[in-house]
């Protein structure tokens, strides 16, 4: 497995330096680059596309929100992990709708950072309590209203994605090729009007397809 190329955007030098040191201790992390704001990050990405960017929300020149928007629109392959002090539900909800791949609180344990990076790299999203809490508090559930538009296979795939399996695992389980899996996933995404796996989880929860695990307090 090739090593992950990760870019960090944060306006605090200490945070960037600390992050780089920590990331370099992770097994699967390869190249790490840093940017002081959204603009710098975007020019870095334009130079060489990374696997994952770690974004702070509060930044001068260009904030994390605008930066994420730009990346989602122009570099859909780049996975976005938001790392912020601002875990207010509204922010998270907006970012979820935008199509970012994961959230971390700026108080997370190093192990969680590692876990989140791998989850995003392998399974396209990282589902943690931040997301669960937002789903639970902010999403009004209306059971089985629109889910009928999905085919049985698509529903199956949606469920498996929500169970946090990797594409490879899913295609093995369903005995289809990985390419077919991605086709199905693309169909689901366009049908439910989501922009990534986080959006799919949100949709699934909204439709009552999945339940949330009991929450730990964050």
């Amino acid at each position: 497995m090739s090593k992950l190329k990760i870019y960090i955007a944060d306006d605090h030098t200490f945070v960037r330096k600390g992050m780089i040191r920590l990331l370099n201790t992770f097994e699967r992390v390869g190249d790490v680059k840093e940017a002081a704001n959204g603009k710098e990050l975007i020019s870095l990405v334009q130079g060489e596309v990374p696997n994952i960017v770690i974004l702070d929300l509060e930044m001068p020149v260009m904030n994390g929100f605008d930066c994420a928007k730009h990346l989602v629109d122009n570099h859909p392959d780049v996975k976005i992990l938001i790392l912020t002090m601002h875990t207010e539900e509204v922010f998270i909800l907006n970012l979820m709708e935008l199509g970012v791949h994961g959230f971390l609180n700026k108080n997370a344990e190093p192990e969680e950072v590692e876990k989140a990076l791998y989850a995003i790299a392998d399974r396209d999203f990282y589902r943690n309590d931040i997301i669960n809490l937002v789903l639970q508090n902010k999403i009004k559930r209306h059971r089985n209203v629109g889910s009928t538009q999905l085919s049985a296979r698509e529903l199956e795939i949606l469920l498996l994605i929500c169970q946090e399996l990797t594409p490879l695992e899913i295609s093995k389980r369903l005995q289809i090729s990985e390419k077919t899996f991605f086709n199905h996933r693309a169909n689901v995404l366009s049908k439910v009007n989501a922009r990534g796996n986080v959006g799919l989880v949100k949709y699934a929860y909204q439709q009552g397809i999945i339940e949330l695990p009991p929450l730990r307090s964050i």
Binding site: D10, G18, R21, H86
Partner: peptide, 22 residues
């Protein structure tokens, strides 16, 4: 408070974590 001290504490934690892992 949020942006400066919060971030600095986070950076401190990152470094301590780095030490712990090194």
């Amino acid at each position: 408070l949020h942006d400066s001290i919060g971030s600095l504490l986070w950076a401190a934690k990152l470094n301590i974590a780095f030490l712990g892992r090194s």
